[in-house]
């Protein structure tokens, strides 16, 4: 298979306003790719175009070797899983009945229901009616629904929003297991820790334009000043540039036993985004 996702010169215009402008990227098979950006940056629009919920104004989009013109086929739909703001559940039915419906629609074995209930930590609640669930529990059921047919590629729009830290960790482990089994994951998130922990590569989107793309560690290195941040026992905070001329100064501090803590400058993804766009990633 070629790239799982290939996007070239993507453009989407709503009422003469460009929501996406000349966006190009690719996602390799088996990769976890994160699309990061503030609200209104075009993340959800991008996901909707990639899943066939929206048609692009211009540009070429291929997902799993299928051109966007053929996104409506059953064959294509059975290969992808989607969790987006358009995902919803049948409130009068139980968790089990909701998952059973999608198991049958995707021609997946019913045993998958229990497997997915374990992944999202809801095995005990399977007979509960959806209307009685909390927002976080519903989000977990939606995630189970998106993954129930073992899709080759899964699109997750803010998958862990509204979840408590314990369940976020549980879901992350589930997603990593899924990825190890070969599933490609395309996710959007505001959570920089989540992106750093899960993603092989991330792309920053702002005002519909791609601002940066790369491996989180490589980006952090690229945007690092490479300086040493030293905190002394005297309470001083020193920034020492990573240059050969400063080697003696660092050596001296260590020999004199003045160093309380020392670390290299290592910006977070949020700080990098701030540096590129001048705005917080919220």
């Amino acid at each position: 298979m070629n790239n799982a996702i290939e996007v070239n010169g993507l453009r989407k215009v709503f009422d003469q306003n460009a929501a996406i402008e000349d966006v190009s990227f690719f996602v390799k098979p088996g990769e976890i790719f994160g699309l990061l950006g503030p609200s209104g940056s075009g993340k959800t629009t991008t996901i909707k175009i990639l899943t066939g919920e929206l048609e692009q104004t211009a540009g070429d989009v291929n997902v799993l070797d299928v051109h966007s013109q053929s996104f409506g086929t059953s064959d294509f739909k059975s290969k992808i899983g989607i969790l987006s703001d358009n995902s919803s559940l049948y409130e009068r039915l139980t968790i089990y009945d909701n998952l059973k419906l999608f198991c049958k629609l995707y021609d997946a074995p019913l045993e998958q229901i229990d497997v997915m209930l374990d992944v999202v930590n809801l095995r005990e609640e399977s007979k509960k009616t959806v209307s009685k669930l909390s927002k976080g529990m519903k989000q977990r059921v939606l995630l189970a629904k998106a993954l129930i047919h073992k899709p080759k590629l899964v699109f997750l729009d803010e998958p862990t929003s509204a979840l408590d830290p314990g369940n976020v960790a549980h879901i992350h482990r589930g997603l990593q297991k899924l990825n190890e089994a070969g599933t490609t994951i395309f996710l959007t998130t505001h959570d920089m820790e989540e992106a750093t922990e899960l993603c092989d590569r991330v792309a920053f989107l702002d005002k519909g334009k791609l601002q940066e793309l790369g491996n989180p560690d490589e980006l952090r290195y690229k945007y690092s000043t490479h300086a040493f941040h030293v905190e002394t026992f005297a309470g001083e905070r020193l920034v020492i540039e990573n240059e050969s001329g400063n080697a003696n100064k660092i050596k001296e501090l260590i020999e004199n036993g003045e160093v309380k803590a020392m670390q290299t400058d290592n910006p977070t993804l949020g700080q990098i985004f701030l540096k590129i766009t001048g705005k917080e990633l919220v």
């Binding site: 059953s74 739909k77 358009n86 995902s87 559940l89 049948y90 995707y106 021609d107």
Partner: peptide, 14 residues
């Protein structure tokens, strides 16, 4: 209204 139709339409069901 509850957006469940979109879920069905995004599934392989025609």
């Amino acid at each position: 209204e509850k957006k469940t139709l979109r879920g069905l339409m995004l599934s392989p069901a025609s």
